[in-house]
Design a protein around this nucleic acid. Sequence first.
DNA 1: GTCGTTGCTGGTAGCGCTGTCAACGATCCT
DNA 2: AGGATCGTTGACAGCGCTACCAGCAACGAC
Lengths: 365, 365
Amino acid sequence: MGRKRTKSGKIRLAEVAELAGVSPITASRFFRNPEALSVAKRTRVESAARELGYVPNLAARALASQRTEVIGVLIPSLTNNVFSDVLRGIYDASENSRYSIQLSNTRYSILQEEKLLRLFLAQKPAGLIVTGIDQTTESRAMLEAADCPIVQIMEIGPNPVDMMIGFSHFDAARAAIAHLFAQGHRRIGFIGARMDPRVQRRLDGYVAAMKDAGLFDQRLIVTTATPTSVTLGGALFADLLAREPGIDSVFCANDDLALGVLFECRRRDIAVPEQIAIVGFNDLEFMASSVPTLTSVRTNRYEMGSAAAAMLIEAIEGKRPEEPVLDLGFTVIERQSSQTQRPAAGPRTPEWAPAVQNDSVTNDP
Amino acid sequence: MGRKRTKSGKIRLAEVAELAGVSPITASRFFRNPEALSVAKRTRVESAARELGYVPNLAARALASQRTEVIGVLIPSLTNNVFSDVLRGIYDASENSRYSIQLSNTRYSILQEEKLLRLFLAQKPAGLIVTGIDQTTESRAMLEAADCPIVQIMEIGPNPVDMMIGFSHFDAARAAIAHLFAQGHRRIGFIGARMDPRVQRRLDGYVAAMKDAGLFDQRLIVTTATPTSVTLGGALFADLLAREPGIDSVFCANDDLALGVLFECRRRDIAVPEQIAIVGFNDLEFMASSVPTLTSVRTNRYEMGSAAAAMLIEAIEGKRPEEPVLDLGFTVIERQSSQTQRPAAGPRTPEWAPAVQNDSVTNDP
DNA sequence: GTCGTTGCTGGTAGCGCTGTCAACGATCCT
DNA sequence: AGGATCGTTGACAGCGCTACCAGCAACGAC
């Protein structure tokens, strides 16, 4: 065919328009807003585009329209299983849209986040997904000034920049502790790693629950800034045990730590749950098949990602959600690692007096 | 200041050039190839850019230069831990370059891969990272016709499209089996999930090793197309055991399966390694802290990603590597789950006759 | 019959940057 | 001294697309 082309052999919009017998601008409209065309031209352009194998040039589109079709995503870690689930949700939900995902890793640094945010915003993204609610003042200002929709994910809190999807880590931790209370546990240890804001809020939830029960003891808490791992779980548990041999259970800020604790118990011949109960957080897949199976707090990570992307895309296209804050909740999945032998039969007094060494203000139940 | 700007208030290259007292093209060169400028102009442009807070418009650059600074990455899964490590390597290595990563998930479908490849190539990426060596004929043709560097990752094989970084899954599996042989095991089961090409080649390695030893038996192999999980490991092992109660060890095509097998052994009170030895694949973090610790084949996933990105960027910038194929190797990490009590003391005959039911050609050791 | 109004279409004029090529002076070599 | 070479700089002309606005026909209201 004698149709003229760029030297690179690429098919341009002009070629499609020519073949369809319309003006380039009409062809352009076909790709952006087909409803605006008459049915006749629509089908003509469509078949011309298919025949030529036309693929729009996104750079030209971005330049001419002064906006991109890129959704920026800022997450703190690529290693953490939690974020791979979230990411999968984001990618799945954006897959059949016109938007592409631009991912960046803040490595749990809010300064790095600020830097990346500046970079992203300069390219005028169509939308932004950021992790958490703890941005720097500067970041916060940039986000508020941004002229694109923004979703904060992973947790919910007051004053959303725009939209927000997550759950309360505080409440989730509290619920986990309530479950341990219900199972008769009193001397509950806490182990946490990395101590990013969300882990910190889980700790806060634990502290609140323990204080409410008059069982708070600072010495039950072992944390580190080190990134989490199964091995670390074992090590932290060893530390906790060395300091407080009298604990009857451990709440782990995530499942890797919980698995590490389970292995450490096995190593020391500590019976789970008879001597020590274990509760994790996130409910990763392996929690259901370990021996004993491990209790955990299920979080809706995939949904968090997919809902965030879906909501963002809707907002980009002008259909803002009724309610900008979406609480995806959590569920305490009770498994063997925290089930005492005695069947739960309503509230009852523990069979042994908790060895409370509590020097803080509490409201006894 | 009375400097003219776009309505959006954005600073353009022209403004920077004006302030620096040079032509726009000189300013442009400053950002792409500073060495080409005289020191005087270089510093003038630099300070002008800083003063105005200039950020280049990538869309305009892409349109004018007919190429992008995007590295396309095609991976088969976002869930698999293996790929999150590879991805981390890729992102880390590209972080301080001018290139940005565009990620897409093929979901282990080579047809989906082909579709995505077409999409990517249409945008003229600066480079491409694709997973594996099993592309469709069409994909292969597109890759070969692409005018950008390409790295195939995760495994090595004959006929690289361009560059290649990985290791031999076949050899790695073979080495794992050799280790089990050395520990006195003979009746070695294989369990595998998903059965993507790389898992298939691990199976091939297992088969070759078993045949070489005259120990091959089809009934020792249990596989499924289902995606891998810890739970699945337990289930597959249960199947294997039901069919072949006489096995003395299991080689798992990945670590999740191995962990599942370990838990299933615990559930059934099977002593590991005394009754059943377990070997996994990839050496994920938890393998070193389970009880017993789990033997695995360590693969250099992070390095695979970072080396691929680094090599690709070098190639984009014209510095092609001497050797286009890089074998990152593997290491069998011998841990408790496969160590027999008797210390390894050179080659020795097994203490019991292997129940070989072998109908294939073999070369006995 | 005139004047909107609506629905569709096209022309013009860039978006901000870089490829290409030419020009220039300075330096080097024969 | 003349020419060649190098390093540095700038003018010009788009890259492929879309915003903006104008035009046109068809229709209905008054």
